[in-house]
Every structure is written in structure tokens, then in C-alpha cells.
Design a protein around this nucleic acid. Structure first.
Length: 289
DNA sequence: CACTTGACCTGTCCGC
DNA sequence: TGCGGACAGGTCAAGT
């Protein structure tokens, strides 16, 4: 799924497109992913205007002027695509758009605004969800209260990073990067990419990694997350932004999905294994265990 | 308690 | 072309 750069790209798009629009109707065929009381939806969402779109970790929040928010997790295959009726398919760069006419077979929720524009929540694998909560309760909700700091916050220092990573001394470094209670927003792509950049083996236990190496990892992780946001995130298979278009970070990827290709530092073939239960790409020479 | 594994779903790709 | 199995960007609950 969508990791921090992808969710942030969606947020940037939606925050440009949604504020000021008023919700006229919401339809869904999916109680499990839209576990909201219909009366609450009628009272707190219909007729409410979007004030802003925010992000915390990999969670999006569409804030309404009713003091309620739609809180959304895209998980592995979720998409939030906005359409105002002016989209012309096939114009411009056809390969940019992964999404055609909507709704399609993976559309789970449709928000219709009073001006006729619509926001589609698509999710092939149905792991994602859309909840309506009082805005005040969102930070303390079960899925956000234990989440760690945002790695791109200016106040988040290398010392903070190292101290939090060292809370899991025996775990493989990759497992720790993926743990959202340690650091927010890192997933499989950026774990592999940052460990490659910092020349750390993904299965290396934290206790065996020096402070200098962790400082390098901190610097590389932040640079990679920033670069990916600039490139609109990574599209491996499903991911698209708020306009249905793909991201281009993977053309810059040095390890992720590059198994069988040469390492750009030493020429060794990048391998793919399994670490922390996830497909893991690394250079067996540069990233010494 | 710390840490790892399976389950949640649907679709796609790969080998036989 | 068909079929079974492995796998896919995330996160929990349940297991060791």
C-alpha cells in the first residue's frame, strides 16, 4: 500500500480538490469497511462542508465543518480518486492513468458533492476502511494513539530516531522500521530503499548496528521519503493519486523490485528474500550482515 | 513481555 | 487454456 509518500501525495491532491465542497450523498455496499451508523452519517456528514484534508502516519482525515472527520486507511490496495465530470480519458498521457471510468468493480464507497463532483474509494482487496468520527477523538482513536512520530517533522532528530529504534534491540532492523509504533509511515518499499542507501543488511539485529550507521539510516530515510513525495510516490501495481495517476518514484528505486539487476554501487546482483515476513530486496555485498 | 506468524481479501502471475 | 499455489505496498490477533 500506500506508505507515507503515497498517502501524502493523495492528501496533497485531495486538499487541493475537496475543501469548500459540501457532501450531498454517500453510497456504499460494504458494511465491514464502512462501519458507520447511518444516522450519524445523516446528521454529521450529509450537508457538511469539507474544511481540510490531513494525514497522520498512513491515515487520511477528511475534516468536515460539522466537527466530524472521515478517517480513511488505504491499506494495500485502497485508492481515493476525485472526479468532477471534466476528466477526458485518453487525452494527454494515457499511461499516466491507471483508473478509467468510475465507479468500477473495486469501488466500495462514493461521496457525491452538491456540485455533482464525486470522490471514489476503491479497494480491490477490501483491507481498507472509512470511519466517521468526531474530529476531537481522532488522535486518541485505537489506530492512532500508539503511532510513533512522523519521520519528516523538523523536530524529529537523529537522536530521537536512534533512541526509538533501540527499543527493539533483538529484532531485525527491517521489522523495526515497519513497526508503526516506533516510527510512523514506513512500509516495505521505503524500508528496503533506506536500508540499501545506508548499507545495512535488513535482517541485522538492532543491537549489532552502530549509532553511526543508524544516523546514516535516519538521513537516508528522510531524503528518500522527501524524494518520493516529490515524485508523487511509488506505483508498483495499484497505487494512484487523487486524480487516478501513478507515481514515478520506482524509476529511482535502487533495491525494491530490482532483484536480478545489478547493484548501482558494486555491480552485484540484487537478491530477494524474506525478512520480517515480507519480500525483501538488498545487495548481498554492500549490505553486509 | 518481546517477538513472530497467520488471517483478512481479491487478483495476477508462474509453473505444470 | 486450465488449475493450483505463491505472492502482493498493511495491520491486527493469536501464537510461541
Amino acid at each position: 500500500m500506500p506508505e507515507l509518500p503515497e498517502v501524502e501525495t493523495v492528501r496533497l491532491g485531495l486538499n487541493r480538490l475537496l475543501p469548500g465542497r459540501t457532501i450531498a450523498a454517500i453510497t456504499h455496499d460494504w458494511p465491514k469497511g464502512f462501519p458507520n451508523d447511518e444516522a450519524d452519517v445523516r446528521t454529521h456528514a450529509l450537508g457538511a462542508k469539507v474544511s481540510s484534508v490531513r494525514r497522520r502516519a498512513k491515515v487520511l482525515m477528511i475534516e468536515l465543518d460539522s466537527a466530524y472527520s472521515f478517517v480513511i486507511h488505504l491499506k494495500m490496495t485502497g485508492q481515493l480518486v476525485f472526479r468532477d465530470g471534466t476528466t477526458r480519458f485518453g487525452a494527454g498521457h494515457p499511461n499516466d492513468s491507471l483508473v478509467g471510468e468510475l465507479p468500477d468493480k473495486s469501488t466500495r464507497v462514493i461521496f457525491t458533492f452538491t456540485d455533482g463532483s464525486r470522490l471514489f474509494f476503491n479497494d480491490q482487496r477490501k483491507f481498507g476502511w472509512v470511519r466517521l468520527l468526531p474530529t476531537h477523538d481522532v488522535p486518541n482513536s485505537s489506530f492512532l494513539q500508539k503511532v510513533g512520530p512522523e519521520p519528516l517533522e523538523e523536530t524529529f532528530s537523529a537522536q530521537d530516531f536512534i533512541a526509538r529504534i533501540r527499543r527493539r534491540p533483538k529484532s531485525a532492523i527491517k521489522a523495526v522500521l515497519l513497526d508503526q509504533t516506533i516510527i510512523a509511515g514506513v512500509g516495505n518499499i521505503y524500508a528496503d530503499e533506506s536500508l540499501f542507501a545506508a548499507k545495512i543488511h535488513p535482517a541485522k539485529p538492532v543491537s549489532e548496528i552502530s549509532d553511526n550507521q543508524l544516523t546514516q539510516l535516519y538521513t537516508d530515510l528522510r531524503a528518500i521519503l522527501r524524494l518520493s513525495i516529490e515524485k508523487g510516490g511509488s506505483t508498483d501495481r495499484n497505487y494512484v493519486n487523487a486524480e487516478g495517476k501513478r507515481g514515478s518514484y520506482l524509476t529511482f528505486a535502487r533495491a525494491f523490485r530490482r532483484e536480478g539487476q545489478a547493484c548501482d554501487r558494486c555491480g552485484t546482483i540484487i537478491v530477494k528474500t524474506r525478512v520480517a515476513g515480507r519480500g525483501t530486496h538488498y545487495c548481498p555485498v554492500c549490505q553486509v550482515r
